[in-house]
């Protein structure tokens, strides 16, 4: 059974594109045939994060408008078997595509692929409605900040109104040190507010920027903590039970001293 997963958030800049790229690559590494679809029409980005920007010939809007066949627009990622990108148009706007177009497109992709990952644009308008139209399942990305969580809550309500199963949450840009000092909401705080199941946590880490610089998703790097976080997310997405490990405890002098003095737990479980 193929599945279409939309990665959405409401707020921009919280990690949807990073997540779509890593989840797509992670699922392909695990042996699945995967199409990642950039639904951010007019502001395409997923091609750059995946390092495939030089190979674009056709785009999603051209497929929808019948200017080319779907197969011609799909870009095959040469690093991993089974990973394909359908890029967004850069010179068109969101209204070039309708929810019905997307539903048809996703249906066609699901005949070929095990997973279709939709990278949703920010906002709650046309781009969101298009992205969610063909989806079977939604992942909500948030950061531990008031504005991102507020928007996530809005989106969760809209996803539920679309007859999709309960969405699952990814908490991105988590900073264990700030959580330890009480300056960032922890996993429990966020789950208490959003009340949906957690499917992953990704630390705030420079690896995200380095991998974006290179066009090489972190999930390809077994030693990257971000890559490892996305491997666990991938495993959970396909249905494995993966425990939530503790992120590295802060290693600053003060954190170490506090642990010696018994003021902080040895490991913070996240």
């Amino acid at each position: 059974m193929s599945q279409c997963i939309v990665v959405t958030s409401g707020k921009g800049g919280v990690g949807k594109t990073t997540t779509s790229a890593n989840l797509g690559a992670g699922l392909a590494l695990a042996g699945n045939r995967v199409a990642v679809v950039d639904a951010d029409i007019g502001l395409r980005n997923l091609d750059v994060i995946l390092g495939l920007e030089n190979r674009i010939v056709y785009d999603l809007v051209q497929v929808v408008e019948g200017e080319c066949r779907l197969k011609q627009a799909l870009i095959r990622d040469k690093r991993v078997e089974g990973l394909f990108l359908l890029p967004a148009a850069q010179t068109r706007d969101k209204n070039a595509v309708s929810p019905d177009d997307m539903r048809r497109l996703v249906g066609e992709l699901k005949e070929e692929f095990d997973y279709v990952i939709i990278d949703c644009p920010a906002g709650i308008e046309q781009g969101f409605k298009n992205s969610i139209a063909g989806a079977d399942r939604a992942l909500i990305v948030t950061t531990p900040e008031v504005s991102a969580i507020r928007d996530a809550d809005r989106i969760i309500g809209m996803v539920e109104a679309h007859d999709l199963p309960e969405p699952e949450l990814i908490i991105n840009r988590y900073r264990a040190g700030m959580v330890e000092r009480g300056d960032m909401m922890n996993k429990e705080d966020i789950l208490e507010i959003l009340a949906i199941p957690l499917i992953g946590m990704v630390p705030d880490h420079e690896d995200v920027i380095i991998s974006a610089n290179r066009g090489q998703p972190a999930v390809f790097d077994e030693n990257s903590v971000v890559g490892q976080a996305y491997r666990r997310i991938t495993d959970r997405v396909v249905g494995h039970e993966v425990p939530f490990p503790s992120f590295e405890t802060p290693t600053g002098m003060w954190a170490t001293m506090k642990r010696w003095m018994g003021l902080a737990p040895m490991r913070e479980v996240v």
Binding site: I149, R150, D153, R181, G182, D183, D189, I193
Partner: peptide
């Protein structure tokens, strides 16, 4: 640690969010 830390900002965040989400809904 000795004289008591200022209240952690995450409690403000959580409290504000709770009120905000109710009014959004």
């Amino acid at each position: 640690t000795v004289f008591g830390a200022p209240p952690a900002s995450k409690d403000d965040a959580k409290q504000r969010l709770k009120v905000l989400l109710i009014h959004d809904q």
